[in-house]
Design a protein around this nucleic acid. Structure first.
Lengths: 149, 149
DNA sequence: TGACTATCGTTCGGTAGCGAACTTACGATT
DNA sequence: AATCGTAAGTTCGCTACCGAACGATAGTCA
């Protein structure tokens, strides 16, 4: 209990470990396609929703604009995505799949689904629902509280 | 249900969101002390366990040696930590708090505890236990399966 | 119209993480 | 004793995340 070598058993610790276990497994699959997990998520979003502003993309993926900027420019450099200024609002940039991007998307697996199937095998649906609920409530309670002021 | 703008409700998504909400809150507190969250965790471990090899530190924090190497050298650069070769095994490096490191540690808050208290307020202990259990099982199932082979 | 203010995206500097290749050191086996 | 395999740390190149400062555009309101 007071043993300092004791594993911490908090939700936060396990959320982190699960997140990184997931990410590492997803990356292992995507590495063979030369793409990162967030890049995959961007392609997913573009394939599902079509052309969209970078701002909307960031909202959908829960990623800050500063982070997204780098991911998008990587995809542009790879020729998978096109970034054009919006005619309606010159501040915005519309992001969409190129032909090559669509072709790449069609040949890509869904590593998140694969990993999820392994991760959650044999876990009772009710327990999953409880876990999601706990994580959502905890996230909200942290996000609605300002630390460091 | 098939609306592509629908929020994904998987455990993985919420584990990620909770992890980053937590990290951002912890960082906001630690930023005022000029230190990062993993750096804090290293100081915590050293304060609790005393001098230790980098390998052991990595095990305790679930961080790869390559990642830890950078964190430790940052702390060495800040003068909070000392890194000396082990006399028993010249390959190993023993990491320990310096005087300044101990002093800094004594003046540092525990942002993880603070944020945890906010995050988990009002959540039933039984639900917390279920959530931890789900995350642990899912993590194990992912880690024991080799993807990308 | 002109002055503020707010928003979108980029860039910079920093933290955190990983795999692969490398160096050095230890150990065992022959 | 020489060799071969393994272990500890570092470095390199990469993904991904953030806050803060910045330029450009848009919107508001006096």
């Amino acid at each position: 209990m007071s043993d300092p070598t004791e594993e911490p058993e908090s939700v936060g610790t396990w959320a982190k470990r699960y997140y990184f276990a997931n990410r590492s497994a997803v990356d292992a699959v995507l590495r063979q396609h030369g793409i990162g997990s967030t890049q995959w998520a961007v392609l997913y979003e573009l394939a599902a929703r079509g052309p969209i502003t970078q701002r909307e993309l960031g909202r959908a993926l829960h990623v800050e604009k500063a982070s997204l900027s780098g991911v998008v420019s990587t995809l542009v450099r790879k020729g998978l995505v096109d970034q054009a200024p919006s005619t309606a609002d010159q501040r915005q940039r519309i992001v969409q799949l190129t032909g090559a991007g669509q072709a790449a998307w069609d040949s890509l697996p869904d590593p998140f689904a694969e990993v999820r199937a392994t991760a959650l095998a044999g876990i009772a649906p009710g327990d999953l629902a409880t876990a999601v609920d706990v994580l959502r409530r905890a996230t909200e309670q942290v996000e609605n509280h300002h630390f460091g002021d």
